[in-house]
Design a protein around this nucleic acid. Structure first.
Lengths: 141, 141
DNA sequence: ATAATTGCAAAAGCTTTGCATGGCC
DNA sequence: GGCCATGCAAAGCTTTTGCAATTAT
């Protein structure tokens, strides 16, 4: 039986509770890897040996639609997915294809208050994504 | 005969000067559209009716390697390309698939001085990309 | 019961690769 | 002349689509 939090998230979003959905959501909540659809499928195969990738994609699409998760773009045209917790940004290392969360409340505040003052003409801001691109050093990753 | 600036950029980067390369670079410098490879090919076809997409991709790869242009990612897994001028960020409207440059020196300064103070452990910053996601309103676009 | 979700197979879309031909330095 | 870039065709990968079968409410 699946975890209560997961079930609550699904029902709060008016989504039918299926074993596949709870499994996908559990994987996403358990990883901070920003997994790709394929990565997620690998984990799922522990419980669902034959789950089709297409199903994973369909589930991910629904979750993105509902705002439960976010798509994170990399520069090698593969989407990666991120369970939405609090606002955060990303450290991205193209070389090693690593994405790590970067929490920085102060920076968050700085940017959003700046943009609140500025107001960009003809544009309504929905979200702000900061990608700090660089290189992880010395961290056996 | 191609534009002098274009030729200088290519030779400064130790790239052989070919008609295809100068044409691609001219297109990129002329557009502020953040075109996809396909978009670029469309423009090129005015002068090279049969240029293969593969060639365009190869040229774009070389330019990205040299830092002449940047890849910009969207959320529909198609790469788009941006001639590198000064530092700027992007307004991105997923709905209309529009990307617009956003110049804001003050914000630039705010972020980079903040990150200079902070120093993120085990990470060497190479670049900062801010995507402001939202919706263009009332601007017949 | 019925509307939504899953599974499967096939297709679509973007991008890359390999190799022969041709062009730049 | 030597090496790099181009052109072409084919393949590769990720993601999407359609539809029948199954399942949740």
């Amino acid at each position: 039986m699946a975890n209560k939090t997961v079930i609550k998230i699904l029902s709060d979003n008016n989504l039918k509770i299926t074993p596949q959905r709870t499994a996908v959501l559990e994987v996403l909540m358990g990883l901070d890897n920003h997994p790709s659809a394929e990565n997620i499928a690998e984990y799922l195969r522990m419980n669902f040996p034959h789950i089709p990738l297409a199903t994973v994609y369909k589930i991910l699409d629904v979750f993105v639609d509902k705002g439960i998760i976010k798509k994170v773009q990399t520069d090698n045209n593969q989407m990666r997915y991120d369970f939405v917790t609090e606002n955060h940004h990303h450290l991205y290392c193209p070389e090693k294809e690593l994405i790590e969360d970067y929490y920085d409340k102060e920076l968050e505040e700085l940017i959003s208050s700046h943009l609140a003052k500025k107001t960009i003409p003809n544009f309504r801001i929905k979200d702000i994504q900061l990608q700090i691109i660089g290189e992880f050093i010395n961290e056996n990753k």
